[in-house]
Nucleic acid binder design. Structure first.
Lengths: 200, 200, 200, 200
DNA sequence: TATGAATGAGTCTTCATTCAT
DNA sequence: AATGAATGAAGACTCATTCAT
């Protein structure tokens, strides 16, 4: 009846428990899909009873959203390790390569999370909202970074957005080993060159 | 599983009925998601009884796979309208633009099918297999086309694959209007230039 | 998702099945209380599966309401067996006695239904609405009957309402044998005299 | 069941705490219904932890019964404010009116308690027992009072019982405003006259 | 072939009660 | 004595699949 009796844990033990549920739940959902994961499994994986789950979360969906908020940074678009210092134009290739490697690492960590989230994007407004917001945030962040390093502002947003897409695709290929016909070392090289061309 | 009692319809009426179920089912599943679509809805949309569905299909999953096989060509990677004739290098930009427009049209038609399929890709081996296979087929098809038009075979597969990814991303952006910050006309222009650069 | 997929049975078999669920459900709920009766029990008592219950009814509550609508006439206030003919003033005592006997019969039949319904009256608007409406209907029906037989219209509604209350109490006493200290034959006689005095 | 570990509080603080739980619990249960009130709410309303509840009470049901025992006097049948002095026959109407007003006050205070208790009466033997016992006690008390004031003992119990029922109904009507068609001032007048007639 | 009524296992969620602290 | 986190059994409801007709 009340709007929500969700308890916000204060004690360290409880906080850890809540974190554990988010972690286990999000992991399972990402691995097997939202609908193929039930609350009993989540509770079991987190080492708690089913009941306690509902003291910390509204419902199953809430667990997923919490996981999204918690891990999204690392899943979608890792915040580039931009030092505040200006970079030299000749370092740009290295910076791109670094960015790519970061992405790949993240994709490896997040396993299938990315795809599950993409999946829910079109049937779940909350997921969709979060995903798109995050995508734009990172686009703007990179744009600003490049802009403050002397890159032309003209169509910068669009260029960065294209770049992110390219990198994202590359990562998927590499992490999920989608096609044996593709030589990933070559592909990576091509991607870098392509991005450099993009910013001329 | 095991021996099945699935009837392969011979009569025209029956064939049409089966096709209708595939069409309705696939459409609904793509629109609302696999788990948000139930067999009753599918049957109703197809104008048949729930019972008959199980005479044509193993189970609900089977309907989706059949839809995948039937419509995937148009959803994922439309077969480029390559005439067998050689093309002139100076026509390449136009060909690319054409390819992009084709893609966009297809995405519009298939609405959210693409995302739903991607979603199931990681929890469903059959979907995954079909998707990856198809992706590679089209990559090779385009590669061959370019190769036979004088493009260097060196890393061609990889280049084409990168290109497809870029186009795919562009289409998503345009079709789903994901971000209001992005100017899609500009983005499209950038993508074309970028692809041209890719093949130098 | 749709507003309701409740099926209205057309075939005789199905209609009977729906009736059976209402009957079993209402009986159980009245006997053990709404919260002490679960859907599995209702289904079992009706000789059907739990699933089918939800094809005919919105939810458990709906079953109860249907039972209410179906049986309420007999439970609360049986429609008095008023012939259209005028009655002679000297027959009034007999008519009252008849009314009382009718009530008692009904209470016996409905067992504890009456109390369960009263119980839900204050936490369930639908039940409450139905109950009060019915109560007034019968009050007005009797008022009209008496009025058309020459009884003064002055405060007639109120008098009838008081009368109904008296009869209702008497029935409860008699049917539930609430108190061994009470001589029910005597009580009944007193009630009749009291009602006569009411209408002078 | 069996031996219990229920602690009977001795210290003043504890006694107060137990009283508070009874009060809060009984109030909530009467207001929202037994099944719509959970122990967490009761504990919260009483300003104690959920755990402590089970040191003072067997279970949730026990809280309600304790409330019943504690407050029933005021809910069901308020002890008439009979002075021991004899009353004059001509004061009888005033005494009746006083009794009625007392009842109405009590009903207003107890809100829906009465109905909730009636509700549980038929699915709960303990409640039932207590309720019926109490009802008879008050009947006898009033009977004795009237008897000692010169009223004939013949069928006195039954008459008083009928009277209590009439008053009870009146109170319900007035307190819950059940029907807008009824003029309560008139109804009250009729009831008084009716009761006077009952005792001639 | 076709229907759609029927099944019942499976899922989310609640809550009385217990227990570690 | 007290807390409130934790338990887990129980219940409402859904839906893929089967079956009587």
């Amino acid at each position: 009846m009340g709007t929500s009796d969700i308890r916000e844990p204060i004690q360290k033990r409880s906080i850890e428990k809540k974190e554990k549920i988010i972690e286990s739940g999000f992991k399972l959902i990402c691995k097997h899909g939202y609908h193929n994961t039930n609350t009993a499994e989540i509770a079991k994986a987190a080492g708690v009873s089913t009941g306690i789950v509902y003291q910390y979360f509204e419902d199953k969906h809430d667990i997923f959203i919490c996981g999204l908020e918690k891990y999204a940074d690392n899943i979608f678009y890792p915040i580039p390790d931009f030092s505040n210092e200006k970079f030299n134009k000749k370092d740009f290739p290295a910076i791109i390569e670094n960015l790519i490697n970061n992405y790949i690492e993240n994709h490896k960590l997040s396993e299938s999370a990315h795809q599950e989230i993409m999946a829910m994007t079109h049937s779940d407004e909350k997921v969709s909202y979060y995903f798109f917001k995050r995508e734009m945030e990172i686009t703007e962040m990179i744009s600003n970074y490049l802009s403050s390093n002397g890159f032309s502002k003209e169509n910068l947003i669009e260029k960065v957005h294209v770049m992110i897409g390219i990198i994202d695709n590359l990562c998927h290929e590499i992490v999920y080993h989608k096609h044996k016909e593709i030589n990933y070392t070559v592909m990576k090289k091509i991607v870098i060159e392509n991005i450099l061309a993009l910013f001329k």
